[in-house]
C-alpha cells in the first residue's frame, strides 16, 4: 500500500496546495510518491523531492502536458496508478477538474474535499455547504481523495526523495487551449492565506473595491477575496470568490466588508480563527458568526481602519 499525490504546478514551481496534500497523504501512514507531469518541469520535480517523507517523484515530461488538460493527465495517472492504494490531489480547481476523470477511468468512486483522515479507508468531509460533516467509509479497491488544503498543514522541507522519469502517455488531442489568463500572483494565495480581506456587494463598485480594500489588504499583509455578490456585480474577479462554490479558506483573521453572510458564503469561512465583519445593517447574518462586529458605513470605517493600523 502506498500513496500517489498529483502535484499542482505551473511548470516552474510547485504550488503550496500540494504541500498540504502531501501532509494529508502522510496521515495515511504509507509511503508517499508524488507525480509531476508537465513540460520542462524538472525543477518542480526536484523541489518535490525535498518535501519531508516523500519517497519518489515520478516525472513525466511532454509538450502535451503544457496545458495540464484533464484528458491527458487522467490517462497518464490511470496508467501509473496500478501499484498505489490511494491517489490524492488538493481540491483546487485543478484537482476538481482532474481527479474525478482519473477515478472514473479506474472504475472507483472518489471522496471529495476530505478534511480529516481517520484511517486508510475512513474520511471526514463537509456536505450541505459545511452544515454537516459526513464520516465516510470507502470500500473501493483504490481510494481516490481530493484534499481540502486549508484543513491540513503544509509538509516541511528536509526530504531526500529521488526523481524517477516515466514515459508520457500519448496525446489524446481532445481539447485545444486557446488562451490562459493568469492573474499575477503578487499577493498571498487566497486559499491558504493567514489573513484575508474580502468585499461584498455593499462595496458598490469595482473602483471602490480596489480603492478601499487594497490598502487594507496591504496593511494587513492579506489576500483579497470577495463574495459572489461582488463577483456577479463585476466588482471582483471570479477567482476571488469565497464560499461553498468558490474557495474555502481558514485564515487566522478574516475581515468581511459589506458582505451579508449568506449560507453559501459562510461555508467558505467557517474555519477562520477570527472573523471581523463591517456592515451597516445590524441585522446582517454575518454578525451571527463574527467575533468582532462593527456596525458602520464601510466607506468611512475602512479608511479609518487603514489609518488606525498606522
Amino acid at each position: 500500500m502506498s500513496v500517489l499525490v498529483i502535484a499542482e504546478h505551473d511548470h516552474r514551481r510547485l504550488f503550496p496546495a500540494t504541500r498540504h496534500a502531501v501532509f494529508a497523504a502522510q496521515q495515511l501512514g504509507l509511503d508517499v510518491d508524488v507525480l509531476v507531469a508537465g513540460c520542462d518541469c524538472r525543477d518542480v520535480a526536484v523541489s518535490a523531492t525535498a518535501l519531508a517523507g516523500v519517497r519518489s517523484v515520478l516525472l513525466a515530461e511532454a509538450a502535451h502536458y503544457a496545458a495540464q488538460t484533464a484528458e491527458n493527465l487522467a490517462a497518464l495517472v490511470a496508467a501509473q496508478a496500478g501499484p498505489y492504494s490511494h491517489v490524492l490531489t488538493s481540491a483546487s480547481a485543478f484537482g476538481k477538474n482532474l481527479l474525478p476523470r482519473i477515478a472514473a477511468l479506474l472504475d472507483v468512486e472518489q471522496v471529495s474535499d476530505v478534511c480529516r483522515i481517520l484511517s486508510a479507508d475512513t474520511f471526514v468531509r463537509p456536505v450541505y455547504a459545511g452544515n454537516a460533516l459526513a464520516t465516510v467509509r470507502n470500500a473501493n479497491a483504490k481510494k481516490v481523495l481530493s484534499i481540502r488544503a486549508a484543513a491540513f498543514s503544509a509538509v516541511e522541507e528536509g526530504g531526500n526523495g529521488t526523481v524517477l522519469e516515466i514515459a508520457a502517455s500519448p496525446d489524446l488531442g481532445l481539447v485545444e487551449v486557446l488562451r490562459r489568463d493568469r492573474r499575477d500572483a503578487g499577493r498571498a494565495e487566497l486559499g491558504l492565506a493567514r489573513v484575508v480581506v474580502a468585499g461584498g456587494r455593499g462595496v458598490g463598485s469595482c473602483d471602490d473595491f480596489n480603492r478601499l480594500l487594497t490598502p487594507l489588504a496591504d496593511k494587513l499583509g492579506a489576500a483579497l477575496g470577495a463574495s459572489y455578490g461582488a463577483v456577479s456585480a463585476g466588482y471582483a474577479a471570479p477567482d476571488l470568490q469565497i464560499g461553498q462554490t468558490g474557495k474555502i479558506i481558514a485564515p487566522d483573521l478574516y475581515v468581511a466588508v459589506g458582505i451579508s453572510g449568506a449560507i453559501q458564503h459562510l461555508a467558505g469561512i467557517k474555519d477562520a480563527k477570527i472573523i471581523v465583519a463591517i456592515n451597516k445593517d445590524p441585522e446582517a447574518p454575518i454578525f451571527k458568526v463574527a467575533d468582532y462586529g462593527l456596525v458602520a458605513d464601510l466607506f468611512e470605517a475602512v479608511p479609518a481602519l487603514v489609518a488606525a493600523l498606522g
Partner: peptide, 25 residues
Amino acid sequence: GVMTIEWAEPPVRRAGVRVESVTDL
C-alpha cells in the same frame, strides 16, 4: 462503495462582540 457511517454538525460559531468604533476594533 462509499457509505456515510456517521453524521455530525460542525462546531457552532457564536456571535462575538459588537465593537464601538474602529479604534475599539
